[in-house]
Design a protein around this nucleic acid. Structure first.
Lengths: 167, 167
DNA sequence: TATGTTATGTTATATTATTACATATAGATA
DNA sequence: TATCTATATGTAATAATATAACATAACATA
């Protein structure tokens, strides 16, 4: 499972994630159906986030459905059960790299190659909790997405100034 | 300017923000036109994020334009110059509460009343910087959005479990 | 197998955003 | 002032993302 931008055995990574999902669903009595499993597999195959219509295109080619609700139903299931995340900045979806744990995921999104890497930090969650508590706000979910350049794209292109431009 | 969920003199808050934008644009030679100013004013009037089409509805009523690019052009300007932010989770836009400073804004979004409050934390930016650096990633922009319940909505409704549900 | 629940499929449509370019206006320059 | 140039606004068409509402099918288990 990718913890960063380093290379790894991706086939094993996919198989392991699917196996975990299988056993998790078996345990909980969730129906890990053909479509749901395939959508998760498609997401696992990429280190990019995939749009719902990209996924639907694949399903359609494979005779698994042609209409948007097919894929949105499956994504709802995967997100609700923690197998996938929505990347809000991209309106796209990414397989969860740390399934089975409650966490506040952090996504690093490369604007150049579009790769997405998930990490998690317990301290960050605590930190946001403190920030929110100071305002009397109660956290239920967090969206933390960092945009910038991944290691290999940094070599290819200079960074843009940190947003916003004003100083 | 709202730093939290407490009440404040909102009319003064709007006028002050517009005045700051006026002088900032004058300084920088930016054209703070009627449409741009009005869109910012509409955003400032709410402590909610407004969708592009909500804004367009207002502009349209006022004879300031009827087609989507009108409002998207204005939003592009406001966001690029740090007067407004896009709230990715809501596909909506919010006036910036700390214009004139480089910052990593944090938005607290109440799922019940839809209010949005912006805060900023320099430590968080540092923290994310460290997290990213450890992965070799270079930050350009951040999206940090917290969903949950604002103080008054906490009284009205119990919280939902922290996402994701799996443990 | 009968029954309730969950998943999938269908149709239609809503919502958000962009492309590509035409026209108008502001600000700078001759 | 007249012209030039850059920027802003306006128009038309369409793309991309997502949902509502409901029908049918499959599954789970009594």
């Amino acid at each position: 499972m990718p913890l960063g931008f380093e290379k790894h055995d991706h086939t094993a990574c996919i198989q392991s994630a699917l196996a975990k999902a299988d056993s998790y669903c078996a345990d909980k009595g969730l129906q890990f159906t053909k479509i749901r499993r395939r959508v998760l597999e498609l997401l696992l195959m990429e280190h990019k986030a995939l749009g719902a219509y990209d996924l639907l295109g694949n399903l359609s080619n494979e005779g698994l459905g042609t209409q948007p609700p097919i894929v949105y139903h499956a994504l709802d299931f995967l997100v609700a059960n923690g197998f996938a995340h929505k990347i809000e900045k991209l309106n796209a979806y990414s397989a969860c790299c740390h399934p089975g744990k409650t966490h506040a995921p952090v996504f690093m999104i490369c604007r150049r190659c579009k790769c997405v890497v998930e990490t998690q930090t317990e301290p960050l969650r605590n930190f946001l909790g403190t920030t929110a508590k100071a305002a009397g706000f109660l956290i239920e979910r967090t969206v933390i997405e960092i945009e910038g350049l991944c290691p290999s794209c940094q070599k290819a292109e200079p960074a843009r100034p940190y947003y916003p431009l004003r100083t």
